[in-house]
Amino acid sequence: MSVGADGLVGAAEELRLALVAAAGVPRPLVAVSLPLSTDAVVALVAAILGDLSVCFVDPSAAEEHRRSLLQALHPDVVLDRSGIRAVASSSSSSREALEAGYVAMSSGSTGGGPKGVLSSWAGIDAFVPHGAAVLDLDPSSVWAEVSHLSYDLAMTNLLVALAAGSSLHLSGSLGDRLRPLGFCARVEATHLRLAPRFIDLAA
């Protein structure tokens, strides 16, 4: 599926208002458990424009893993395929106000449970124009993405592409993840940046 600029900001603002209303706080911490899709990109843009904090959770991960991530995160609101729901056990009322941004969660495989690392939108804003320039991205560019937004490389990919005004083509299908160059050729993408494991598969 592809993403263009038309209607993206409007859809993101509508979603932001719904997230804030559901959470009951002006700057909620949002957990997004959507597949790689246009809806996920809209959620990302809603968080950026609304100065919200957002963490992406891969819905294809094992249920126990997803549950442990949400328990460690304590989001104010969850957005998934069933819609938006406030989290009653959220610690927002007692949580100290944090700088908003993208929250990357560890897997928790090293013990002690998953842990989050916050990258502020201000820091990301300072980075993405330089990233876009280094990757030679502009509005004529077409970015192909096969990794879920819970993976920080995919997040960086989409942020630099959006900052440059590039078009996005997204696919969460296993076939395209295993054959990313085929997907890239099919959508006539000009840019594709892969994790090392996907480079090995492509080779």
Score class of each variant (00 low, 15 high):
Gly83Gln: 03
Tyr151Trp: 05
Ser119Ile: 14
Gly83Met: 08
Ala62Tyr: 02
Ala61Asp: 12
Ala126Asn: 15
Glu99Trp: 05
Glu64Tyr: 03
Val54Glu: 04
Ala72Asp: 04
Leu98Pro: 08
Ser120Val: 01
Asp138Tyr: 01
Leu137Val: 01
Val78Glu: 10
Leu70Phe: 06
Leu79Glu: 06
Trp143Ala: 13
Ala132Thr: 01
Glu63Gln: 13
Ala72His: 06
Asp76His: 13
Asp80Pro: 01
Ser82Leu: 03
Ala132Arg: 01
Ser53Glu: 11
Pro75Ala: 05
Phe127His: 13
Leu79Ile: 00
Gly112Tyr: 04
Leu70Gln: 08
Ala97Tyr: 13
Gly116Thr: 00
Gly123Thr: 00
His74Thr: 12
Ser107Gly: 04
Glu145Tyr: 00
Trp121Ala: 01
Asp136Glu: 14
Gly113His: 05
Ser120Phe: 09
His148Thr: 12
Val128Thr: 06
Val103Gly: 07
Gly112Gln: 03
Ser93Met: 14
Ser107Cys: 04
Glu96His: 09
His148Arg: 10
Lys115Ala: 00
Gly108Tyr: 09
His65Thr: 02
Glu63Trp: 09
Ala133Tyr: 10
Asp80Thr: 01
Asp58Arg: 03
Arg95Val: 03
Gly108Met: 05
Asp152Ser: 13
Gly116Gln: 05
Val146Thr: 09
Val134Tyr: 13
Glu63Phe: 12
Arg95Lys: 10
Val103Trp: 02
His74Leu: 05
His65Pro: 00
Pro129Glu: 05
Ser82Tyr: 11
Gln71Asp: 10
Lys115Met: 03
His148Phe: 13
Ala126Met: 11
Val57Trp: 01
Ser68His: 06
Ser119Ala: 11
Ala104Ile: 07
Ser109Asn: 09
Ser92Ala: 08
Ile84Pro: 11
Ala97Ile: 15
Val54Asp: 02
Ala86Arg: 15
Ala122Ser: 15
Ser89Phe: 14
Gly131Trp: 07
